[in-house]
Amino acid sequence: MKKTLGERLFDYGNILFLVLLSIVTLYPLLYILIASVSDPAYVAQARGIMLLPKNFTLDAYNMVFKNPMIITSYLNTLFYVVVGTTLNIVLTSLGAYALSRKNVLWKNFIMFMIVFTMFFEGGLIPLYLLVSELNMIDTRWALILPTAVSAFNLIIMRTAFQGIPDSLEESARIDGANDFTILFKIILPLSLPVVAVMVLFYGVYHWNSWFHAMIFLQNRELFPVQLILREILIANDTSSMTTGVSAVDAMPIGETVKYATIVVATLPILCLYPFLQKYFVKGVMIGGIKG
C-alpha cells in the first residue's frame, strides 16, 4: 500500500523521536560505565560529558574489589538474593498451585484474604513493631521473611497454572501421582517461562531493595550493597572507599570508585533481563489484567 506524505513524515518523526528517547535513556548509564574506566582527574573536568573512556584504567575496580566493606555487602546481597528468591519461588508456586485447583472449599476465601492485602495493609510502623516483637531486628531474617510472598506474583503464577490443560494432570493421577508430584513433575516443568519471570521479579526486588535493610539492620556486617551505595551516593560519604590515598587524590578517585561500585552493583541484572524479555511481557499481561 502506498503511504501518503503525512504518513511518511510521521514515520520519520516517530523513528527520530524513539532514537532520541533511547539516547536519553542510555546516556546516563553509559556515562557511568565510561567514567568508571577513565582517568579520575579527567572525569572531574569532564562535567558529565564523555562519550569514550579517557586514559583507560581499571584502578577504580581494583579499589572496589579491595574494599572489605563493599565485598562484605556484595556477599550479603548475594545471600539475600539467593535465599530470599528461593523461598519466594517455593512458597509462591505452592500457593499458586493450591489456588489453581478446582474443588477446593476454602480456595475463594484464601484468595480473598490474599488479594485484600493488596488494597489495605497494616503499614510501616506495625510491621516494624512486629519484626522487633519477633526478635528479628538486626538479623538476616528481617530481610527475607516479611517479603516471603508477593500477592501480585502469586496471581501471575496462578493464572499461568490455570492455563495448563487438565488432561495432563488427570492421566498422571491415574498413574498414582499425588499433588506434590504433579506440581514438581508436570506443572512446574511446563511453566518454566513464568518461573523464570518470577525469579527475575523477586531477584531484582531483593537485589535492589535497601529500605528494609535501613530500618531493620544496624550491624554493618549485614548490610546489602545498596545500603552501602546509599552512603556513597546520597550521603556523599566516600571516606570508606579511599583509605590509603592522600587527601589531594582522594576526591577524584572517590568519584570514579563511586561509578565503579554502581557498575558492579547494577551490571549483573542488566545483563540478565534481555534474555527474559519476551516472557515478562506475557507475565505482566496475564497477572496485571486477568488477576
Binding site: 512458597l91 493450591a98 492485602t117 495493609e121 510491621l127 513493631l129 516479611p146 506434590f180
Partner: peptide, 25 residues
C-alpha cells in the same frame, strides 16, 4: 484436599503473621 491444604499452609501462615499481624497491630 489434604495435600492441597498442606501446600498452602506456609503461604497462609505468612499472610496471617506478616500481613494480618500488622493490621492487628
Amino acid at each position: 484436599n489434604k495435600l492441597i491444604y498442606l501446600m498452602i499452609s506456609p503461604v497462609v501462615l505468612y499472610y496471617i503473621i506478616f500481613q494480618y499481624g500488622p493490621m492487628y497491630g
